[in-house]
Amino acid sequence: MNQIPLTLGEKIGFKKQPRGFSTRAIHAGQDPNQWKSHAVIPPIVTSTTFAQDGPNEHSGYQYSRYKNATRNSLEQCLAALDNAKYAVAFSAGVSTLTAILTTFESGDGVITSRGFYAGNFKILDAFSKLGVKVKYIDFTDSKNLKQALDDSTKMVWLESPMNPSMTVLDIQLLSEIVHKNSKAFLVVDNTFLTPYFQRPLELGADVVAYSISKFIGGHSDIIGGSISTNNKEFYDKISAYQIMIGVVNSPFDSYLINRSLKTLSVRMEKHFENSYAVAKFLESHEKIEKVNHPALESHKEFEVAKKQSYGHSGIFTFFIKNGTLEQSKTFLKALKVVICGESLGGVETLASYPWLMTHGYLKDEEKIKAGVTPNLIRISIGLEDVRDLIDDIENALKSI
């Protein structure tokens, strides 16, 4: 058998991807024999209700909010990709945090960071009014976590890489601190890397959360979220609240996500190859102050990223040298191939401006604390010809 070529991640020094991921992505939860038709692609089951032989005598399906065959197929596949026993799919990424917090009681504590996804702040602020205690800390110094943990701490919520700073946190180290010093569970938002490039459960996390709308969905046409875990008690509680709250994927969205998972590995490799090439170009450009891409040797946590990940995706940030708000806006408006827009992880390249977009509702001092400055650009590199992307970005930089 001929030797299989190394991936970009392996060439740079990231962890070697074990065999089987693509096979699970295509087949897990999708055995044709589970359907009478033997359909290779899971059917879209749109029925909201199912016939019963008698009162509470059913096939396992009663009402589609409780259980749906298309969604079940998706959840089995999502669990398999994280090497987890269980997965729960939601109607949106923010529903993952909301569902978890709904199981909390007044006085329960959460430790997280202001440097993470800004949309979570609104959810946490709402639950803090109901008695949930929220602490915001800097996770880059692990001592801060140890000091923040107390008897009330029920959950520690991480992102790595962080959004939008691209800071990489040592998940294994932080999970050891959490489990040694508290009874809290550790949740890692793994949206940026997907289970292809990082599997936090392998690093000691208790739960992994995703916005499926991003790289997992991959085509900018799905809103969804998911949680993976090996904890049966946690799974039972969250799946019960999933049903109770009604934040479930529609059958069609479940079908679309299943479709996207089949190409996840090849898409993520291409995202990585393209983003790495663009990041290297920007790093050498005279008008760029700094590039935050975890696969670059210049990244502060380069060694941590290599230790815990299998590579990187298409998302990174860069700073325009001495850039002002107006210069950043001029640059974004000058782009032709790259689209200025919200979100990330699609096949098309998207550039966003956190200062006015994702973090726009925060006060300026809060933005700065979150690592967001007027010269910061976040870019999600897609699957276009990388030469077209570099040419487009180079031309846009000439306008400032």
Rank of each mutant, 00 (worst) to 15 (best):
E176D: 14
S182E: 05
A305H: 06
I238P: 02
H285N: 13
I379L: 01
L173M: 09
A279M: 05
I339Y: 15
N163S: 10
P32S: 08
H179W: 08
Q198E: 13
E159H: 12
K300L: 12
L325W: 08
E342V: 04
S309V: 05
S254H: 04
T98H: 11
A28W: 03
K16G: 00
R65C: 05
V291M: 09
E105S: 15
Y276L: 14
R19G: 09
I379M: 01
L397T: 02
K143Q: 13
V208C: 15
E159T: 10
G382Y: 07
D108K: 15
A28E: 10
K336I: 07
D141S: 10
L101F: 03
Q30R: 14
Q17Y: 02
V94D: 07
L130K: 14
K321P: 10
G314T: 13
N68G: 02
K237Y: 00
V88Y: 01
E342S: 12
M166F: 08
A305T: 09
G311T: 14
V187P: 01
T102C: 01
P18Q: 06
G218D: 02
T7A: 03
L264K: 07
F215I: 09
A92F: 11
A69G: 02
K237L: 13
Y61N: 00
F14K: 03
F281V: 00
D141F: 01
L256I: 12
I257Y: 05
M357E: 13
V188A: 06
V94M: 11
S152K: 15
R378E: 00
R387G: 06
L124K: 03
L158V: 11
I377C: 06
T229L: 14
A25H: 03
E297F: 03
N258K: 02
I315Y: 11
I243A: 10
G224M: 01
T317I: 07
G225S: 06
D392L: 02
H293K: 12
N375T: 03
W355N: 03
K129V: 13
E342L: 14
R114S: 07
P32W: 01
F192N: 07
T317W: 10
V188I: 15
F197M: 12
K133L: 11
T349H: 06
I257V: 15
E303V: 11
I315H: 13
I245R: 05
S275V: 13
V304K: 10
H179I: 07
S226V: 02
I12W: 02
C77F: 01
